[in-house]
């Protein structure tokens, strides 16, 4: 019996007694949970996902809400980022989004040579995204509260994680290791005894806020930056260099514990199920007149003292879609 099915059946009967049964219409319990320290950009990442999909020059994926609340949230989050240029407010309580990645089939319904209607080959990948506040992962303050326990339960039932590591916030707060370590321990305890000894989930490690000047300069220093010359010259960190850059940024943290993050993640997750990305939810500023990236003027956030930070121009997410698609593809693969 596949581990995932076994886990699902276990959940279905856990605590509820043998009389509880699932209806045939029950959606898959698998979803993607995000975690990261407070203000690491989890909500902004979720908000930018739809835009990233829509802006991608080659991919035809798009995001849709499965239910009304998720659909409304999708519209609201995107509108805030794109139209009003505002960042989402800090998450106070966990938010669940039932989204679906859709890759449309352009030729669905068309008639072939023999007059037969072509089968619809639209790809659909369920994406149950959970955006929880960072404080619930703090072992000193929150991990024992009922709400945090509930969060752990839900995360344990997920098929994939997105871990957002914000080097800017880490530099001032130094709390990423603290949040990650306690949470993983709890999830591991909850799932305990998985075949192979690893956690069964896939993990996308996202080093966030590449657009921040400090992170960008660090990337330049580390010589991990490449440029998207085919589009607008905007910089990015290729995936094969992401792990190295992540480790480097962990080492740069004033909190020495952060250096332990890469090995810890590798201990908990199977090497085939972990992948590193360097992301930016809003991307770099690109001069509208030239349409090219300008190394002397690339900040896409205007932050005046005492004012709410505003997004300067259109957002150009970097590596936001990729981790989600990677997770979704693997989740899909494991479900089939």
């Amino acid at each position: 019996m596949p581990a995932r099915v076994a886990r699902r059946r276990r959940w279905a009967t856990a605590d509820g007694g043998q009389h509880r049964r699932l209806t045939p219409a029950q959606p898959r319990s698998e979803g993607i949970s995000m975690w990261g320290a407070p203000s690491s950009g989890k909500s902004t990442f979720g908000a930018a996902l739809g835009v990233a999909l829509e802006k991608h020059p080659y991919e035809r994926w798009r995001l849709r809400g499965v239910d009304i609340r998720s659909s409304d949230a999708l519209g609201r989050l995107q509108n805030a980022l794109v139209h009003t240029g505002e960042f989402p407010v800090g998450t106070q309580e966990p938010a669940d989004y039932n989204w679906e990645l859709v890759n449309p089939d352009e030729r669905a319904g068309m008639r072939g040579l023999l007059g037969l209607t072509r089968r619809d080959r639209t790809e659909r990948i369920a994406l149950h995204l959970r955006d929880g506040p960072g404080r619930f992962q703090n072992p000193d303050r929150w991990l024992d509260t009922p709400r945090a326990r509930e969060l752990v339960e839900t995360m344990a039932a997920c098929a994939g994680f997105i871990f957002l590591y914000d080097p800017v916030s880490e530099h001032t707060m130094g709390d990423s290791y603290q949040h990650t370590s306690a949470l993983l321990a709890r999830i591991d305890q909850r799932l305990g005894g998985e075949p192979g000894g690893y956690l069964p989930q896939h993990l996308a490690v996202c080093l966030a806020k590449l657009d921040d000047a400090r992170v960008y300069r660090s990337a330049l220093t580390a010589t991990v930056v490449d440029h998207n010359y085919a589009v607008d010259d905007s910089p990015f960190v290729p995936d094969y260099l992401a792990e190295e850059f992540f480790a480097r940024m962990c080492r740069a943290s004033p909190n020495p514990a952060a250096q332990e993050l890469p090995p810890k993640l590798n201990r908990y997750f199977h090497p085939d199920r972990i992948r590193f990305f360097v992301t930016s939810a809003i991307g770099f500023y690109v001069n509208p007149s030239t349409g090219r990236f300008d190394p002397g003027d690339y900040r896409n956030v205007i932050a005046e003292p005492g004012e709410k930070p505003k997004i300067r121009a259109a957002i150009r997410p970097i590596n936001v879609m990729e981790p989600v698609l990677w997770l979704a593809e693997h989740m899909k693969g494991s479900q089939s």
Binding site: P27, V66, D67, I68, R69, S70, D72, A73, E93, P94, A95, D96, Y97, N98, R147, E150
Partner: peptide, 20 residues
Amino acid sequence: NSNFTMHKHRLFFASAPRDD
């Protein structure tokens, strides 16, 4: 917030149902 599905309110106003 309807996306906060774990809330404990017995009577509440929302913009969308939280249950699928």
